[in-house]
Write a protein that binds this DNA or RNA. Structure first.
Length: 918
RNA sequence: GCGGGUGUGUUGGAAUUGGUAGACAACCCAGACUUAGGAUCUGGUGCCGAAAGGCGUAUGGGUUCGAGUCCCUUCACCCGCACCA
């Protein structure tokens, strides 16, 4: 009987589906293990071989854990709201739901061929009302809560209202966008609208005016992580800064906890570092400078991490968007300031980043240094950001390179504060050295001076210690159609939450998916987008909304009373292993942690962090092929000869190329404009060029997993993707090596079958066979726990070659179990042929017996005349003295050159006895 | 500029964490069996050398009896952040 993978893979996939083999049921008698993949956005292009890499790894791990006796939750679903489907809808008029449905069906059929052990009963898509009901519900919870800094947690907004009614604004220490000051009596006298406006500054989901990333091409605002270098991540359109009122999530309130929580997570260092960077904690002080514009005086607060350098402040700088600009522009400078502001505004974000030219303008106002009493000019410059700190800085040109450049350009004084620092050519930014020119700080090191300066300003009431974070609140509204509608309506202008019973609030039908002529979002096109006669919010939630709590929903996906029941959540708790790409480092992985912490604070979930261990699979790149067209002709020249002509490089579909040799006939048939192509060959062949690039349709280098399953089978695909190299590394897809893996499976099959005979027998295994088996068991356990799947595959190949043609049941049966996480189909088939009725997925993992694998002899290193040699095969149990004696007794010539002399024995920590011959 | 990471045959990659570098594969070569092979099997394959032997883990140094592994230098590449005061 031959290894007919197509037949048996189909057979078992159907059986697993029909019998719901991988259905996960809450079972408190077993330990749980939750393995999650980052669910895909189902794009129109379908899956290529790179997508399943992480899914295969997580499936192997799930199956392994199941064999080890864990109750495994391993679900899959779809992140189905999002821009591409909507862009397509705008172009074609086709409803995004239709295209999304088609894409999902395609994804599902591709995944089904690979034999994953998902519990498909838990599948959902984020655009399904039964699911997004809970996204809207979570939004309402955030709308209905505030962050109490005193308790360091979110609390219901009712508590805040009560506190205000009893003690006014001074009664709480809360995270807020703005902190109006009022008494209890004033609060109680506020109108509904006024109360609503005040509370809006405190809510975790709130409406507020800020500068946002506005993408005119997409017609929507974007979150910071959706913008890269001034362009939208989706589509690559230019993004500009625009002041708008938008829904936001108060992620900044959680900055400290998001940062501290990282220490307890088993994530890669680079990923944690990325998040730390994004959160951007810096310790420093806020200080008040008196500022004066003519006769008008104000207190202006600035933030600095270098309180020690106050004595070197020679000017102040405001961000162009700062509200201080208006207050501090002197009449004489008004024209110049306005001209500067217009110039700054004209620049796109892109130009501001790229330009890095020093520019600025004097306001005509002055600030007083609170320590020296000296007056310094106040300037405006775009190098100061409005969104960080207070949007105004004290400039210390001697010890900050940006201030230095500015001072040089505008001829402002530079006062060095650190002994021996040469500031004639550049600033001295390092936080080291001994202070000078700094009054009471003179003689201190910088490390001493910083806290001393802060202590001084605190005791004199001119400032206080302050921790600042870079992370900003997440802009949460999108002026688009294909997303969750906000469960908010406007009652006399007051944003009001829908009652929970009214959820889900589903998307209305619209005639077009474009904004209205008036520039309102597409939802404004709906015939009756109202609630009880009041207008509903017309923007929708962003892509990350639906993915922020989906891991919780999998625990209890059909519950229509709660996002997740307390029982289900109490059992499954959190994700033990999360596998996905790094691209979500500062997006989804921050938002999810935030979202989870809010639900945790409010008592809806039992774990503070959602993802215990996280592994980033690398990207699988494509190997593209090129042909070279001679410019102005339809002639194509082979790679080796192309330098003799002026050519353009053209991507050619890799299915037309084998081993870099072009199938010229297929090429002519590929595209009409190549039909009459001519070729200049070398040695009768057309050789193509190649490059490693991102796998994508436009580069014609996409390898479809279906094709691989057709030619080699899913088990080969799975093994090969793991064999390709370390999981976390990016690597190009290379079909050359796949034959070796396929050959391994064929050989494995031949242990059980020759042409027509089932070979398995009940003979006793030899010692060597047991050793091969147990070495493999030990290796597999260790490797899988370390996510080193590539070496496990190698270990299987080694074991197979050591076993020769062993067809003994006592060896083969455990072998089938060991291989089953990697190659589930072939092993399931063989498991049943061995006479078992249940699935191999629930077999008991073979017990590892190290006794079989222990070597009873080993080699001892002996150094002689500076060279290390090894004396082989002495008993492993020897003490150093015995080894010494053994070496002495050996015929010298047999072991090392020269006359044997004194032996000096050194014991290195561990098992190795080290012998030096002198 | 700051931060994280990587550098091993022709290629993907191993190396019990300081102990005989190159496992396992791919490629290539030779042979066997075949009407045929892009099937299967066997053997060879880091470099130099006829051999003995020598040289080899990006670079230069250091620690050690012993370094791919630890420490310092330089270089190259990849990724993330980037006027964050």
């Amino acid at each position: 009987m031959d290894y007919e993978f197509l037949l048996l893979e189909k057979k078992w996939q159907e059986k697993w589906a029909a019998e719901k083999t991988f259905k996960a049921v809450t079972d408190p008698s077993k330990p749980k293990f939750y393995v999650l993949d980052m669910f895909p956005y189902p794009s129109g292009a379908g899956l290529h071989v790179g997508h399943p890499l992480g899914y295969i790894a997580s499936d192997i791990y799930s199956r392994y854990k199941r064999l080890k006796g864990f109750n495994v939750l391993h679900p899959m679903g779809y992140d189905a709201f999002g821009l591409p489907a909507e862009q397509y809808a705008i172009q074609t008029g086709q409803h995004p739901e239709v295209t999304t449905g088609k894409n999902i069906a395609r994804y599902r059929s591709q995944m089904d061929r690979i034999g994953f052990s998902y519990d498909w009963d838990r599948e959902f898509r984020t655009c399904d009302p039964a699911y997004f009901k809970w996204t809207q519900w979570a939004f309402l919870k955030m709308f209905g809560s505030w962050y109490d800094k005193a308790q360091d947690k979110a609390r219901p907004i009712e508590d805040l209202v009560r506190a205000f009614a009893e003690g006014g604004s001074a009664a709480v220490d809360a995270a807020a966008s703005d902190t109006p000051v009022f008494t209890a009596a004033e609060w109680n006298a506020f109108s509904e609208k006024e109360k609503s406006d005040v509370l809006m500054h405190y809510r975790l989901a709130y409406q507020g005016e800020t500068f946002v990333n506005w993408c005119p091409e997409l017609g929507t605002v974007l979150a910071n992580d959706e913008v890269k270098e001034g362009y939208s991540v989706r589509g690559g359109f230019p993004v500009e800064q625009k002041k708008m009122t938008q829904w936001q999530l108060r992620v900044s309130a959680y900055a400290g906890r998001l940062l501290d929580g990282l220490d307890r997570l088993d994530w890669s260092d680079s990923l944690k570092e990325m998040q730390r960077n994004w959160i951007g904690r810096s310790e420093g002080a806020e200080m008040v400078f008196k500022v004066r514009n003519g006769s008008a005086e104000y207190d202006m607060t600035i933030f600095t991490t270098r309180a020690d350098t106050v004595f070197g402040v020679t000017f102040m700088v405001l961000a162009p968007e700062s509200e201080w600009v208006e207050k501090l522009t002197a009449p004489a400078c008004k024209e110049a300031v306005e001209a500067y502001l217009t110039e700054v505004k004209k620049k796109t974000e892109r130009e501001r980043i790229a330009g890095k030219t020093v520019s600025g303008v004097f306001t005509g106002s002055y600030a007083t240094n609170p320590l020296t009493g000296k007056e310094v000019p106040v300037w405006i410059s775009e190098y100061v950001l409005s969104g960080y700190g207070t949007g105004a800085i004290m400039a210390v040109p001697a010890h900050d390179s940006r201030d230095y450049a500015f001072a040089r350009k505008f001829n402002l004084p530079i006062i060095p504060l650190i002994e021996g620092a040469d500031v004639s050519e550049a600033s001295f930014d390092a936080k080291e050295g001994i202070m000078m020119n700094s009054g009471f700080l003179d003689g201190m090191s910088v490390k001493e001076a910083i806290p001393a300066a802060i202590a001084y300003v605190e005791s004199h009431g001119i400032g206080h210690r302050k921790v600042n974070y870079k992370i900003r609140d997440a802009i949460f509204s999108r002026q688009r159609y294909w997303g969750e509608p906000f469960p908010i309506y406007y009652k006399d202008g007051i944003p009001t939450p829908l009652p929970e019973e009214a959820l889900p609030l589903t998307l209305p039908e619209v005639d077009e998916f474009k904004p209205t002529a008036a520039g309102d979002p597409p939802l404004a096109r709906a015939a009756d987008w109202t609630y009880n006669g009041y207008p509903l919010e017309t923007s929708t939630m962003p892509g990350f909304a639906g993915s922020s709590a989906y891991y919780l929903r999998y625990m209890d996906p059909h519950n229509d009373k709660a996002l997740v029941s307390a029982e289900a959540n109490g059992y499954w708790r959190d994700v033990d292993l999360y596998i996905g790409g790094t691209e979500h480092a500062t997006g989804h992985l921050i938002y999810s942690r935030f979202w989870n912490k809010v639900l945790f604070d409010l008592g809806y979930v039992c774990e503070n962090e959602p993802f215990r261990k996280l592994v980033n699979q690398g990207m699988i790149q494509g190997r593209s092929n090129f042909v070279y067209r001679i410019v102005g002709t339809n002639k194509f020249v082979s790679l080796g000869l192309k330098d003799q002509y002026k050519t353009t490089e053209i991507h050619v579909d890799i299915s037309l190329v084998h081993n870099d040799r072009l199938d010229t006939e297929a090429f002519k048939a590929w595209r009409p404009d190549f039909a009459d192509a001519e070729f200049i060959l070398e040695n009768g062949e057309y050789i193509c060029g190649w490059a490693i690039e991102k796998m994508s349709k436009s580069m014609y280098n996409v390898v479809n997993p279906d094709t691989v399953c057709d030619t080699y089978g899913a088990d080969t695909l799975r093994l090969y993707e793991m064999f390709l190299g370390p999981l976390e590394q990016s690597k190009p897809w290379n079909t050359k090596g796949i034959d070796g893996v396929n050959r391994f499976l064929k050989k494995f099959w031949r242990l059980f079958w020759d042409r027509e005979r089932f070979l398995v027998n009940d003979e006793e295994p030899t010692k060597a066979e047991l050793k091969a088996l147990h070495t493999l068991i030990g290796k597999e356990q260790e490797d899988i726990e370390n996510f080193s799947f590539n070496t496990t595959v190698s270990a299987f190949m080694i074991a197979l070659s050591e076993l020769g043609e062993c067809s003994k049941r006592a060896i083969l049966e455990p072998l089938v179990i060991l291989l089953s996480p990697f190659a589930p189909h072939i092993t399931e088939e063989l498991w049943h042929q061995l006479g078992h009725s249940g699935s191999v997925a629930y077999a008991a993992y073979p017990e590892y017996n190290p006794a079989y694998t222990v070597e009873d002899t080993c080699s001892y290193p002996v150094s002689f005349n500076g060279k290390t040699r090894f004396i082989a095969d002495l008993p492993k149990s020897l003490s150093k003295e015995e080894v010494e004696a053994e070496v002495r007794s050996m015929p010298q010539t047999a072991k090392y050159v020269g006359d044997g002399n004194i032996l000096k024995v050194i014991v290195v920590p561990g098992r190795i006895v080290n012998i030096v011959v002198k």
